[in-house]
């Protein structure tokens, strides 16, 4: 498995410091992510679960380099992940799909511009309308949207279609690792099934790895290979999905599972 490691996070922390009142002499510290280590393998779905405020989103920001880490190191394919290193171009290799497709697309731009922008920015295609259009049409085909969408604005699309545009935008730079930040929690059940199927197909075709951030254990069971449970900025448990659902070892995992099984089993349990 050694060579298959695509992302290795070792002992990473993010502490936010702030003054509680105006006259505080010492800063208070919030440990949003505290000494987290894990590895993500190639072509794997690695699920991160936990409730609101447990540091899931901070963790994804750290991996994307959107916020400075306090300590620890992250390696991508054995190389130190440093977004300032222009030669390595890590930006191309790690992408994120956001939770809310209603606020993550620029309302002033047409869909083909939204999709092709990362490719232009990273020098994959030239900044010409013809090139961008061709590129966008290709991408739209991959995510199963009609070609006419290219000239639409985001407000003309439904939630599911917007999320597909989001996926097309992520894929435009051919990433090797995709962070999915609650990709279907803003969508309806029927539409979320479509998106999940699409994500699974894409993974099998391209051999990408996913970090799947969610609080819905049903999805984890369906899609993930391994599960990581976070609570209060720390990792409580990392386990294979099957083992996790059969025999969760940490008390917090058990209480999470209980609250889920309450929702899925009959009402008598309440």
């Amino acid at each position: 498995m050694e060579n298959n490691v695509i992302l290795s996070v070792s002992d990473v922390s993010k502490h936010y410091k702030y003054y509680k009142t105006l006259f505080d002499i010492k800063k208070n510290v919030i440990k949003a992510v505290d000494g987290v280590s894990f590895e993500v393998y190639k072509n794997e779905v690695f699920a991160v679960v936990g409730e609101t405020g447990c540091g899931k989103s901070t963790l994804s920001k750290l991996i994307l380099g959107l916020t400075e880490k306090t300590s620890g190191e992250i390696y991508f394919k054995g190389e130190l992940l440093d977004y300032k290193n222009k030669k390595k171009d890590f930006r191309k290799k790690i992408q994120i799909l956001f939770q809310d497709p209603y606020s993550s697309l620029n309302p002033k731009k047409k869909i083909y511009k939204i999709i092709s922008y990362p490719a232009v920015r990273n020098g994959i295609i030239k900044n010409k309308k013809k090139d961008r259009m061709e590129f966008a049409l290709e991408q739209l085909k991959i995510v199963g949207l009609p070609e006419t969408t290219a000239l639409n604005y985001p407000h003309m699309l439904s939630g599911g279609q917007r999320q597909r545009v989001g996926i097309a935008r992520c894929l435009s730079v051919r990433p090797e690792l995709l962070i999915l930040d609650e990709p279907v929690s803003a969508l309806d059940v029927s539409v979320s099934a479509q998106i999940l199927n699409l994500l699974m197909d894409l993974k099998n075709e391209t051999g990408m790895s996913y970090i799947f951030i969610t609080h819905d254990l049903k999805l984890v069971r369906h899609i993930a290979d391994r599960v990581c449970v976070m609570y209060g900025g720390k990792i409580m448990e990392i386990a294979e999905t099957d083992d996790f659902f059969k025999n969760p070892s940490h008390p917090y995992s058990r209480s999470l599972l209980e609250s889920m099984s309450f929702l899925t089993s009959t009402r008598r349990n309440l």
Partner: peptide
């Protein structure tokens, strides 16, 4: 279209 948590569900 909902994934399930029941033991006989195939992920």
């Amino acid at each position: 279209s909902i994934p399930s948590l029941s033991p006989d569900y195939v992920p």
